[in-house]
Design a protein around this nucleic acid. Structure first.
Lengths: 239, 239
DNA sequence: CGCGTTTTTTACGTAAGCGTAAGAATCCTA
DNA sequence: TAGGATTCTTACGCTTACGTAAAAAACGCG
């Protein structure tokens, strides 16, 4: 099971691209540039048609929705297994999420035109991208249900696991304030949950950092949503 | 603005199909059967690859996720403007929602094979279906944020408006118990919200039925999520 | 028309999480 | 190493909604 060995280990290339036939893959690489995902930067704006698509090699990008009354809520997380900018080939007028870099790393970046051309020309590219998009829909659906049904502690545990799957280290760097924005809650609420997980011995934490100490334990404290989405992505990766 | 006149009025055909070139549209119709959407019936099972796609002519279908701990949560609503079964062409292993008929009516039903063949063969069919799917992603995303940020009353108002847009009459028939399943809440909580909206004079209600009395008023009590999603679908419909 | 069933309504104690804000710890820089 | 800034932690009252459950109302069938 590569699932185990993959965890917390840096990958060489974006998995979506890696799954393409060599010819197509090279073609995609030729028309892409390596792009540095800088922590906290916004690579995609709400209410704007995406100019670029990003295929993360390492690092994590969050799709975040900002409500007019102030609060922000993360609706999806994308790393090595996927891409940012599906609206390009899905053809919608404009997507409504900001894409924010949560974990620094790098990505292949491609213009919308290039991506669209390749999507249209090659059936395998298309198949691969749509399959990922379908898995992504599942992630967002699950998040919708999760946000309604599960409490802070379980959702925090889930979020940490999702990050852990997508970054190289067991340390996750970000302020609790930032985390609160992702989980759509107060900093104080997040802090409370962090302390509970720490008391349970599954994580450690200090300023700007949370580290996973006991992954299995953390999984036990997370809601089912983690495993469900994880499995869908794993399946999608099996071609 | 057809938006106004369309409200609460039965449409002649599914809008997605209606937007296709005549040739393709006829082809689709030939390979479809008229199917009766019966209230409460489940037309699609979670954890199963969809056998059929449904293009509602009238009526409403809810996509509902059931969590292992019991609660159910609606993640999306589909009517005349869209279709049920996008997983067929998106290529995922299996989607995780049940599709339940909320408002009775009829739909064109097509086998997965037929749909897939047409999706692959014709660019316009493909474009149309993907565009709808993109709008649907927006709906689910918004629902994810909404479930985190907005209270019962606003969410109930939103839900009623979504139903009202998709059924012929201002009366909406269903038990509050059913409604509770959609909103992922207790019957008692729903009841409380119903009474608040009634006290505000925007709806009336009796056993098994809620009627919209003051649409503008109801919109004012709903969260922004209603308008946001509505606008995205309206835009998508403009080709 | 009466009785059983379904649906709605009310009730009560409890818990989670909010808004607000102030205090404590940590870090950075001069 | 001191002062300022950032981040984390604690606090308090309050609101929403939960779990549970029982009473009331509406309906439908015989």
């Amino acid at each position: 099971m590569t699932q185990e060995t993959d965890r917390g280990v840096a990958r060489e290339d974006n998995a979506l691209l890696a799954a393409l036939p060599t010819r197509e893959r090279n073609d995609v690489h030729r028309s892409s540039q390596l792009f540095t995902l800088e922590f906290g930067s916004k690579i995609l704006d709400a209410h704007t048609r995406s100019q670029y698509a990003y295929f993360p090699i390492r690092g994590v990008v969050s799709l975040v929705r900002t409500l007019s009354t102030g609060p922000t809520v993360e609706v999806g997380v994308i790393g090595n297994e996927g891409m940012v900018g599906v609206d390009i080939f899905m053809g919608g007028p404009a997507q409504l999420n900001d894409a924010i870099v949560q974990g620094q790393g790098s990505a292949w970046r491609m213009t919308a035109e290039h991506l669209l051309a390749r999507f249209r020309r090659n059936g395998e590219v298309q198949r691969q991208l749509l399959r990922f998009t379908d898995a992504f829909i599942t992630q967002v659906s699950q998040t919708a249900a999760c946000n309604r049904a599960h409490d802070m502690e379980a959702r925090l545990a889930r979020w940490l696991l999702m990050m852990h799957d997508r970054v190289a280290a067991p340390q996750i760097r970000m302020t609790q304030q930032f985390l609160a924005h992702m989980l759509g809650a107060r900093t104080a609420s997040v802090n409370e949950a962090v302390q509970k997980l720490e008391a349970a011995g599954v994580i450690g934490h200090r300023r700007q950092e949370i580290s996973i100490l006991d992954r299995a334990g953390l999984e036990a404290m997370a809601c089912e949503c983690y495993g469900i989405v994880r499995r869908v992505y794993d399946q999608a990766a099996l071609n």
